[in-house]
Design a protein around this nucleic acid. Structure first.
Length: 155
DNA sequence: GCCAACGTTGGC
DNA sequence: GCCAACGTTGGC
């Protein structure tokens, strides 16, 4: 068993929230249309990897719970669907262009750890989430960042 | 709703 | 392969 990787995955709660994931138990992480984020999912995410669930464009934005990867990346067929908001005219059946992992609900925090609180933590000051201009919707984090945020949630 | 930052597209 | 124009993200 190789080492667990740690991630942060963003979602806008009005499109898919941690509560939706709790209800659904599992979710195919479709709709990612950024190559860097996609490549993390294809190349680096493995079953059992742990991820923070982050609400973006929210009040407040922040980490709201935990999930884990339960299925490796598979073609994201919403790219082929003309009626989907994720439709990509360059995607084909032979080359769907986009792939996504499936994540499984782990827990929902009692409180949201807001981005302001994250910014206040010295231990997190190198976190890529907090860097200026950072827009990736799927990004790697370190084990210690992950554990630090989990600890904040349990306080 | 604004807008800075960044990614993508496409003409050349 | 450059780069201007355009689109998107996401905090504020």
């Amino acid at each position: 068993m190789s080492k667990v990787n740690y991630w942060l995955m963003k979602s806008e709660p009005n499109s898919y929230s941690i509560k939706d994931l709790k209800r659904d138990k599992k979710a195919f992480w479709d709709g990612v249309r950024n190559y860097q984020a996609r490549n993390f999912m294809i190349n680096d995410m493995k079953i059992g990897d742990k991820t923070l669930f982050y609400h973006s464009n929210s009040k407040p934005s922040g980490v709201t719970g935990l999930a884990k990867v339960c299925k490796k990346a598979e073609p994201d067929l919403t790219a082929l669907d003309k009626n989907s908001i994720y439709y990509d005219p360059k995607a084909t059946k032979q080359n769907p262009r986009w792939k996504a992992v499936t994540v499984e609900f782990v827990e929902i925090f009692d409180k949201i750890i807001s981005i302001q609180e994250l910014r206040h933590e010295k231990a997190l000051k190198n976190m890529s989430l907090l860097k200026k201009g950072q827009r990736l919707s799927v990004m790697p984090i370190t084990k210690s960042e992950y554990e630090h945020i989990v600890k904040m949630a349990k306080k």
